[in-house]
Design a protein around this nucleic acid. Structure first.
Lengths: 259, 259
DNA sequence: AGCTGTGAACGCATTCACAGCC
DNA sequence: GGCTGTGAATGCGTTCACAGCT
């Protein structure tokens, strides 16, 4: 398992009591939603290498999942394959892109242009995958005006103006942890309703705002946990940190393995 | 839970080997493992603000989870709280750090020192959370020798030597996607058994090697999916991307409202 | 004959609710 | 009285296995 779980902060229910008939919630499971971008990328890869039809087995291999899961996931979107044949790569690709909502670009702002913010601002993967960075913001006056990837860094105070001007719904926080909640509040007040948070802080947001968190040292710590167990299971190895932890239980040989 | 837990003493005496206690297979659920670092950080925060005891309710709030889940998670580690009172912050913090395996530093190499690699190399959160970057590697000769955060960038060819010399078990891949599998193979061949992959590629590794993937544009796409649904549920909003689907594929006729 | 799409079975994770201890 | 630790209940996600279509 690889992706963070638990992303949503609030239920999608917008109105309280529903007066008229709603078209019935589609209800794609969250775990499936998290894999759709992976399938999208795999399809793009196949498409680039000239493949125009593929079986669930092939696509699953390219995406790094098993084929039963892939078929189940796709079944939530509709019946886009052909029995006995497989999937049309271009067609399926478009359907998934449409379902995710990246058939057109989402404007995004990045707040906090330190090392990580710089890297994000220069990351070409965003523009090719449905996002367009429209503003970079930083509170430090010394950074303002600096050009990063073709955009100038603006003062944080302009946040409301920029969000409104560009109709921004998605914001990225790459500030130090102490600033994160304040930045978040200002983003939300300005109208942003989805936030990708790189700061190591727990954000509190109002109902209806989504937050996803990416935390680099948490990922490493999860690896460390498994690594420690491997080391304990195999005392011959020397790939162990300098001091050994005291008397932990040895683990069954098969241990934890990801693909 | 069936296995009784031996609460050990608070003394952070790392290295003292326990004689012959052979408990049972621990088997902490993966979902719990992924949250332990979050609890660890929350505890560190509480500790820094002078709190020395907390209830499951308080700690859960600081970590952004509900208290039932927190208590369940902690119960897999042992009985480290006191009924009617709560948890000793320092004690619990040490127990979790020990369980994760970050009571001492893990040496880490980073491969691919582009924008993201730079950011990672400069990220201070690693060193304070159980990791020590011991080498930076890049295949591009123009980058080699450059100093980043006090370390020189080494040629990729030295990977085997560096991994062995520093007993590295964990590697970080921050290269372009095309290079990722090759870098991964070399890392594994050199003895690395845990990999944190930032490249947008599916890595194939032998049994026994763990891979975790962090993909920035996938996180954004997941947000976009939910954002799109909010926009559809609330047509009054104007936080919708600029254009409409651009005939990328035929037969988009059924539109967005169906099913 | 081959491959998709899906109900049913299974297993894991979360939540509930309360027994057990301070 | 208050809070932890945990079986039991519930809910979700994955896997199985095969019906249904080409």
């Amino acid at each position: 398992m690889t992706t963070p779980r638990n992303a949503r902060t609030a239920a999608p229910a917008v109105g309280a009591a529903e007066p008229s008939a709603k078209p019935v919630e589609r209800g794609i499971p969250e775990a499936t939603v998290a894999r759709l971008p992976v399938y999208l990328r795999a399809l793009t890869g196949l498409s680039d290498t000239g493949v125009d039809t593929c079986s669930s087995e092939e696509l699953a291999a390219a995406a790094g999942v098993n084929s039963a899961k892939l078929r189940k996931d796709l079944s939530y979107l509709g019946s886009y394959g052909t029995r006995g044949v497989g999937y049309d790569v271009e067609y399926l690709r478009y359907q998934i892109a449409r379902e995710i909502g990246v058939t057109q670009d989402w404007p995004v702002v990045i707040v906090g242009i330190g090392n990580l913010g710089h890297a994000l601002a220069n990351y070409s993967g965003f523009s090719s995958r449905g996002f367009r960075i429209v503003a970079l913001l930083d509170a430090d006056p010394r950074r303002q005006g600096e050009d990063v990837g073709g955009l100038g860094i603006r003062p944080f105070e302009e946040i409301e103006r920029l969000v409104e001007e560009h109709h921004v719904a998605i914001g990225v926080i790459a500030t130090p942890a102490v600033a994160a909640q304040h930045v978040c509040d200002r983003l939300v007040a300005a109208g942003v309703t989805s936030i990708l948070n790189f700061a190591p802080a727990v954000l509190t947001v109002p109902h209806g705002v989504d937050v996803r968190k990416v935390d680099l040292s948490i990922e490493l710590q999860i690896l460390a946990y498994h690594e420690q167990r491997k080391a304990l299971a195999d005392p011959g190895s020397d790939a162990v940190p300098d001091a050994l932890p005291s008397g932990l239980a040895p683990l069954a040989a098969d241990g934890v393995v990801s693909r």
